[in-house]
Nucleic acid binder design. Structure first.
Lengths: 242, 242
DNA sequence: TAGGATTCTCAGAGGCGGCTCAGAGGTACC
DNA sequence: GGTACCTCTGAGCCGCCTCTGAGAATCCTA
């Protein structure tokens, strides 16, 4: 069907062109990975390694959203934000910050509808936040909340609520993230390596064994005593399907 | 008729020229084999023995996909990836890694459209992954999923599902790989040696007897009580046909 | 029809992948 | 500062998958 798993209308603007994202970070590896993932997910991407480059790129590229690292070698993130806003006031910004960075200051900035993610983050988290931002900003999407549905399993991404056959299921953050990734790729076999890449943060050094562990947690909470939705494909990975 | 078995539209770009693949590995034997197989399958191939050569070859050759060994004598695989991406952001990369090297993986490597295969691999596996990458990347994308059909036998490569006359057939990894090879070469007699070369990993030291064994497994699961699709051509090999 | 070659199938050993439990360490929140 | 929760590691177990070997079945040719 499409390049990626499901079929999100939130990747196209009203005029049919793909949504544009500007990624700003001074770590080349991270820039590379983020760019690749976003492109793969259907966004049109442009990257910049510092504040000055970001501002000039934005002027020409006219992004709908900006992924902005707060710690840039030249201009501070806040100053970059100010300049971006000066030219296009309606642009969405998702900040990337260090965990210990002054979160209250960030909180002040995000008041305007923007959001932030602390490093190290997982790719799924960034994608989810970005989708959320654009959905809230864009007049495009009308529907109630962001609901993912597979069989009788329902996830409300905004409320972070999951129900199976109407029963509320309580999940820990990692479980939630894992399940979201599975639900965004139903009927497709996902390898443990891929899951690890997407759901765990990029600096996680552990083994694929954790994936098995969390799958077993999810099974206990979701599949226990019912027709299973999570299936193991031996030697390959896992699938979610009714 | 043609060089390769079936008639895959995924081997031609929109403009009608064959898809280009750059193969990068420092083992001459492996490079040789991979190049030969890919060429035989209809791809246009270029090879490189190290990172520097890969980058310069890519610049000139403009490949659609790159088969990239992670362990290169000069530049690291990731650095090569970044340089490749810097010039052509949309190129697909299939990484070749040692089994134990997967542990110290760099997060996000498979996160974009990319994928990886661990050594030792089977040629069919590499081909399948490469096709998958290109299919997902290409805007050419036609149907949902990658479906192979022979008579009433249907294989969905993405979901790893096989059905005969609508009935789901459960296969082990090796059975699946063998069947995929047969289904990609319908109505063509395949020798046991050839099957062994393509379906089993290149360092497999066993006898052609395993092929007979796995054919018998497949027959039990697919042909049992129906008009057989798998036929023995005595002294030559096997054919799959309605 | 007999004999040899080839193929098929069964049974079992061994290994590996996946699942689960228990517990340590860390973190957030009170 | 304490407590509760969350995350991850390690180890053990179980079951499936793969392959070997041997014997039965089938085919072809003399």
């Amino acid at each position: 069907m499409r390049t990626t798993a499901d079929d999100p209308p939130d990747l196209l603007r009203p005029d049919g062109t793909p949504v544009r994202v500007l990624v700003v970070d001074d770590e080349p590896d991270l820039l590379e990975v983020l760019g690749a993932v976003l492109r793969y997910e259907g966004w049109e991407v442009r990257t910049a390694a510092d504040g000055a480059e970001a501002v000039s790129a934005a002027r020409e590229f006219r992004p709908d959203a900006v992924l902005l690292d707060m710690m840039l070698p030249d201009i501070g993130g806040i100053e970059v934000l100010r300049r971006l806003r000066a030219e296009s006031p309606q642009v969405c910004v998702l900040f990337l910050t260090a965990r210990d960075a002054v979160e209250d200051r960030v909180a002040g900035i995000t008041a305007g509808g923007d959001d932030y993610v602390t490093k190290p983050f997982s790719l799924e988290e960034v994608l989810a936040r970005l989708r959320g931002l654009l959905r809230r900003a864009g007049a495009a999407r009308t529907v109630e909340g962001n609901r993912l549905v597979v069989g009788d399993l329902v996830m409300d991404e905004d409320a972070r609520e999951v129900t199976r056959d109407g029963d509320l299921v309580e999940l820990t953050p990692t479980e939630f993230e894992l399940l979201r990734f599975l639900m965004r790729n139903p009927r497709r076999v996902l390898s443990k390596a891929r899951i690890l890449d997407r759901v765990w943060s990029y600096d996680f050094g552990g083994q694929a064994h954790v994936v098995e562990l969390y799958i077993s947690y999810l099974r206990k909470k979701i599949d226990a005593g019912r027709t299973p939705l999570i299936h193991t494909v031996r030697g390959v990975g896992y699938v979610l399907k009714p």
